[in-house]
Every structure is written in C-alpha cells, then in structure tokens.
Design a protein around this nucleic acid. Sequence first.
DNA 1: CTGAATCCTCTATGATACTG
DNA 2: CAGTATCATAGAGGATTCAG
Lengths: 146, 146
Amino acid sequence: MSGTHTDVPAPPTVPSVLAHDLPRPVPADEFAACPVGETFRRVGDRWSMLLVILLGQRPHRYNELHRAIEGISQRMLTRTLRNLETDGLVRREVHPTVPPGVEYSLTPLGGTLLEPLSALADWAVRHEVEIEEARAHALRDRRAQR
Amino acid sequence: MSGTHTDVPAPPTVPSVLAHDLPRPVPADEFAACPVGETFRRVGDRWSMLLVILLGQRPHRYNELHRAIEGISQRMLTRTLRNLETDGLVRREVHPTVPPGVEYSLTPLGGTLLEPLSALADWAVRHEVEIEEARAHALRDRRAQR
DNA sequence: CTGAATCCTCTATGATACTG
DNA sequence: CAGTATCATAGAGGATTCAG
C-alpha cells in the first residue's frame, strides 16, 4: 500500500472492462502497489489454491482435475488454469496424440507456493473447530439480542 | 463413467489434500467439505487478509483502518470486520466516550493466523517480480500469436 | 467518529450447448 | 479428450446518504 495520500482525485482509471470474458484485461493497476493484495486477489479465488495443491501432488490431465474437484465447471477450470499458467505457476503440456492429451503440472515457481499454501491450509484444518464455535456463538448472541 | 476403459484404472477419486509432506497428517476429506476450501472462501476475499495483517501490527481504530487501506469503502470495511469478528479472529471494543471510539484488535485465534499469512505475504513479495515477468511474457506471446 | 441503509455496477461462477 | 461460446445469476464491492 503506498497510500498515505488522502486526496487521490479518482484518476480516470477503470477502463471499463466491458469486454465480457477476456483473459485479464489489464485491471488498471493503480491499486497494484501492494504485492500482497495483488497476489491474494490473483490466487485468492475459489479454485486457484486447490488446483495448486492438487498439482503439487503430481501432474494431472484436464479431465482428471475436472473429476477430482467435483463442483468446478469446465469454464472455471479452464479459466483458472490459464490464469495460473499466465502467472507462471502452472505449465501446460500438449501431447500430440489422438485424442489429444494435455498435462498440467506446477512450474518451479508454482512449487514454491506450495509451502506457504500448506501452512495456511494447515491452519485452516487445525482451527476449524474454533472458528465454527466462534460463529455459532456469535450467531446465538445475535439472535438473543433481538 | 461406465465402461470406458481408459488407461487410468479407477483413480482414487478423492485425492488427499496436501499429501506431499506436511509436518502433520492432514485428514483427506472430500473437497466439498474440505475446511481448507471453506476457510479460503471465508478469509480469501479482497480485504480480510490485509486487515488481519494490519491488526497484527497493532490495534487500530475504525477510521485508522479506513485511511490505512486506501481503497476500501466504509461498507466493505465494516462488513469485513464483522465477518472476522464473527469468526472469532477480531475483537471489537467500544469505548463509551464522546464521540465514541472503537478499537479493533486480533484475538488470540486471529493471532495464530498471522504466521501462515505472513508466509504467504512473504512469498508474494519474494516472487513478485517473477510473476510480473511471467505475465508480461505470456501477454507478449499472446499478442504475437495474433 | 462509527457506522447503517440504500442503490447500483461489475465480476466471478455456473449451466448448457457446440467443436477439433 | 480438451476445450470454446453464449447466456444467466448471485454476490462482491463501491457510492451516496442518513444517523446515534
């Protein structure tokens, strides 16, 4: 965050991404100052982390991933993989067989993500119950107060 | 998925999450019920992680946070703080002064998140350049191909 | 100062159908 | 098998206004 300036006069950013489905129409990186926020927004969607974790175990074929995740649509699987590929985290290899076989795997860079990601995942598992309890508690209180 | 005998003989369908080499055994749940995915969806939005990191440095007042983040709307700041509070990660203390002062801080549970989060943030900072380069490269290739 | 309420836009994601 | 193309929708998130 490079902030500290309280008077950013709304630069004419926002190039109005009217293009519906383009791959990353360059999101006017005025906000890209903080790499942490940037990265979280890039890998912080619903599927990226799971894909990285899956591919961290071993390379996978497209439909293998599709079956393994069970709940992701083809559209999002493809899109997420392409994003990860663009960011240099995932490699896509096409084998010119018939029918074509495509194998996805982590790049070395992607491999380095695996460790901090595991730390987070580990945290999630370890504190799952506490969070559940906190939520239950909060919701109970909220009801009681009305 | 009936009789199509491909070369992949009935894969275990439920790949264990994070089976590579964690310090602790991680229960291989189904992905749908995976606490990892759940937690990521809860804390994986645009602001939660940044707030936790900020509050990890020291307690903050509401407007302090608003100024510090530069880009978040009041609406989302309040909403995100409430979510974190509900999940037991953030504590909200109202001081009955005039005008009222509200202080936000991490709970002990929230404090435990700080470490894995820092690992991720660290990764983001360390590999920022590589990612940028990968993206630039990919975009260049994409243009050249047309 | 710390929000709540309202309205609105854009984005992420899904469903479905089609293709090399 | 490995995608694309198209349509549709819920919800994230912002802007603005009101209030204790």
